[in-house]
Design a protein around this nucleic acid. Sequence first.
DNA 1: TAAATAACTAAACGGTTGTTTAGTTATGAG
DNA 2: CTCATAACTAAACAACCGTTTAGTTATTTA
Lengths: 187, 187
Amino acid sequence: MARKKKYNEDEVIEKAMHLFWRNGYAATSMQMLEKEMGINKFSIYASFGNKHGLFLKSIQCYKKQLNSIFEAFKNSNKGIEDIKDFFYNSVRICQIEGNQKGCLLTNTYNEFSGIEDKQINELMNSFMKDLKELFIQKLRMNSKKDEETIVKQANYLLLAKHGLAAASRVNNEKEIEDYIEMTFKNL
Amino acid sequence: MARKKKYNEDEVIEKAMHLFWRNGYAATSMQMLEKEMGINKFSIYASFGNKHGLFLKSIQCYKKQLNSIFEAFKNSNKGIEDIKDFFYNSVRICQIEGNQKGCLLTNTYNEFSGIEDKQINELMNSFMKDLKELFIQKLRMNSKKDEETIVKQANYLLLAKHGLAAASRVNNEKEIEDYIEMTFKNL
DNA sequence: TAAATAACTAAACGGTTGTTTAGTTATGAG
DNA sequence: CTCATAACTAAACAACCGTTTAGTTATTTA
C-alpha cells in the first residue's frame, strides 16, 4: 500500500533507552532524543505516542535486556549462590559501553519517588515485587531458615540492590566485588 | 541607606531545599520555587544568583542540618556502634514531615551521575570522601581488624548508604531496622 | 503505470523554561 | 523632611519544551 519505515523500532528504542539511562527522564529532551535516535520527531510520535510513552517503552526494552540474566536466574537451583550471580550479572549489564549510569530501573525509582506517576509506579512496584518473590524462593532453597528470616533477608537484598546500582558506577572492579561479597557474607 | 529584606535568606533556602529534595533538580522549576519560597523571582536571583546557585545553597543547607548528627557522630567513641547510630539518625532525618524523599545528597548523586557538573561532582565527592574517612576511623576503634578489611568495610558502608536512602522511603519501621541490622551484622 | 497511502521533512504551535529589565515602593542615613 | 538606595512587583525576554500540522516523497498494489 505505502512506504515502509526506514528505521527499526526496536533499534531506535534501544538508543532512546541509553539516553534516558544516562540523563534520566526529566533531563532528556525530545531534541536530544531526535538526534540520538536518528529519526524525525514526527516519527517518534508516530511510533511511540509521546515522550512518556517512549520512556515506558525504553524501560520495557531495558527489562527485556535484563530478561536474559533473569531467565538464567529463574532456571537455576543453587539458592543464595544464584542471587549472588544475579547481582554480579546485574552490575555487568550496568557497565556496558564503559558507562557508569547505574541501573535504569533503580534510577527511575529514585527519580520518580517524590513524583506521582501511576504508570511508572505500577511498573516499578511490580518489578520489585517479582524480584522479592524470586529472592524468597531462592532463600528457601538453602538450609533450615525460618520464614521470618527469609522475608527479612529478601527485604535486605531488595534494598541492597540500590547500593549495587551505586557500586556499578564505581570504576573499580575490586570495590564492586567487595560490596557484593560483604552483602552476602551473613545470609 | 535603604530598605531591609522582608525575607530571611536562611528560611527561604530551607523551603527551596525541601522542594529540590522532593522533586529533584531538573523537575523543579523557578515558578515552583517562587511559590514555595514565597518570594519574587527577582529576589531569588538577587540572593542566590541563579537556579544552579540556589541548588548548591540548598545542598549546603541540607548538609548543615546533617551537621548536628555529624557532630555527635564525630565526638563519640563507640566505633561501629556510632556508625549504626549515624545510619539510624540519617534515616530519621530523611523522614521528617512524613516524607519519603530519601537522602538529598544520595538523590543528587544519582541524578547527576551521568551529567557533567563540576561543582556538584566536587561537592558530592568531597562529602563521600569525608564520610569514608570517618567510617575508617570508627572501624579502627573496634578490635583487631587489619587495614585491608577496614577499607573494604568502609567502602561497603558507603555504598550501603544508597540502600539506606531507599529504605528511608519505605513506610515500614521494621523493614528499615531490619536493613540496618543486616548491614551491620557482619562487620 | 496510476492511484492510494503511509512515512517522511520541516516549520510552527502554544506553553514553559531560566533569566533580565524597567518601574515602583519602602526605608535607611543625613 | 528629604533624598539616595536597595528591595520590591510585574512584565517581558529569548530559548527551549513537548507536541502537532501541513505539505512532500516514496513505495506498494492493483
